[in-house]
Design a protein around this nucleic acid. Sequence first.
DNA 1: AATGTGACAACTC
DNA 2: CGAGTTGCCACAT
Length: 86
Amino acid sequence: MTREVSFREKVFSVVRKIPKGQTLTYAEVARLAGSPRAARGVGSILHTNYNPKIPCHRVIRSDGKLGGYNRGNILKLKKLKAEKAL
DNA sequence: AATGTGACAACTC
DNA sequence: CGAGTTGCCACAT
């Protein structure tokens, strides 16, 4: 079977569909994207291809930590506090 | 075109 | 329980 879209495209589609107040881990996104071992790839992809349409601040580590954020991990924490509280 | 680096996660010792 | 190693994907040089 051939992949119609690149892993990168799949990651964007998944992250973009994260409902408000919901947070996913890099591993979860990687698994939904078709590669459960490519959590690292998810981070790298989001790091270079940040789009305002993609709430990548809702993507956190499985360790319970935030991970990183292009616009400032502090903003990410603030957003998670606001959205997760809903 | 090839190698190295990076927003991670899971396993092993 | 903690530290170290391996696997995966895309991007930068």
